[in-house]
Write a protein that binds this DNA or RNA. Structure first.
Lengths: 196, 196
DNA sequence: TCGGCACCTGCAACGCGTTCTACCCCGCGC
DNA sequence: GCGCGGGGTAGAACGCGTTGCAGGTGCCGA
């Protein structure tokens, strides 16, 4: 090899760095003012990139935020792999995981709101990333339910329902229909109902 | 009384008629091309009303579509009151109701998509209407579950979960994450899981 | 060594939601 | 009878997502 594979030189590395800066800029702006504060011109400026370049890598604002969401979801999943859910029963473990996730998301309400807006956007070009995010969320839940390979009955259906409830609860919360931190409790109760 | 209460004369009646025309125009445009096709200038033109008047009555596009959604939801509920769900068990009745509702919504995919987009918008001024829609959806489900006043345990929590699943399933479907008519089946399976 | 092409930049332009301005009209209270 | 205020109208203007265009610059194969 002429250069180390992860070297900072080379064209590809530079564009990869640009993409990273773009997502980081989007998250930073979202943290300040939510979806509306993520303005494409500002994102480009903060990442020190031309507007056209931003659109070359992310074909829309929603795609940009979906990339951030996918990254965030993957990070959450990784953290949960390293510190698995505690609890004897599947219901308790799911409740634990969802409570932790909700707490993390509640810390950054504006970022969460921006990403959820992108997730519920009708933009057809975002479908693949949305599927990816959906798969990650399901994997997180499934990992908590069936942590010890106990062979829970109807696993897929239960995970689907829990994922739906999680998504709906997040949407309600980030749109101001739900107050404070009832998300975690509601999710825990749903888990108890589904996993007796 | 000088005129019949529902007479078409009088200032108030005219503005009420204008509001009705506006919502009708929004639905008509939504039927043709979904959320994007509902353009405020076009809505105003089709309702034969000035743009400023549209904004006097509905402070944003999302508010307009939420008004349409609230109306639609109320209509659905009324129809379900007149033709109640069939079925011996709560699960069967809920499945019946949700299947019927899903079929109705699937007939008008573009209208549904437009309304759902409005429902998941972050527009804070829409919160009251969103709560109203949420209440209607819950009432529909609760009516099906506890139709014979059987006193189902955890009724509120179960209804909350079913409503979340319904919302999430609709969002997934109208954003193209879900194919065809799996909505009704998924909802029925959720009902079976929650109401054994 | 020299095109070529892939990627960037800066910037103008367009569409649509939303707001603002200026004006009109009509029913109600004085 | 008259002024006034709540709606209504027409239309310009603004902001932001998105697109298009006219160059620049550096690696890569001929």
């Amino acid at each position: 090899m002429r250069t180390t594979p992860t070297a900072a030189s080379g064209r590809a590395a530079e564009t990869a760095a640009r993409k990273r800066r773009l997502v980081a800029a989007a998250v930073a702006l979202a943290a300040e003012g939510g979806y509306d504060a993520v303005q494409m011109r500002d994102v480009a400026a903060r990442a020190e990139v031309a507007l056209g370049t931003l659109y070359r890598h992310y074909s829309s604002k929603d795609q940009l935020l979906l990339a951030a969401l996918a990254q965030q979801a993957a990070g959450l999943r990784e953290r949960l792999v390293q510190r698995p859910a505690r609890g004897e029963t599947p219901a308790a473990r799911v409740a634990d995981v969802l409570r932790r996730a909700s707490r993390a998301l509640e810390q950054q309400p504006r970022v969460t709101q921006a990403m959820l807006t992108a997730m519920s956007s009708a933009d057809a070009s975002g479908i693949p990333v949305k599927h990816e995010v959906d798969a990650t969320m399901r994997a997180i839940i499934a990992g908590a339910v069936d942590h010890h390979d106990e062979g829970v009955a109807d696993l897929d259906d239960i995970v689907r329902v829990l994922c739906s409830v999680w998504f709906a609860e997040l949407t309600y919360w980030s749109n101001g229909l739900t107050e404070g931190s009832s998300m975690g409790d509601n999710l825990a109760r749903a888990a108890e109902l589904l996993l007796p």
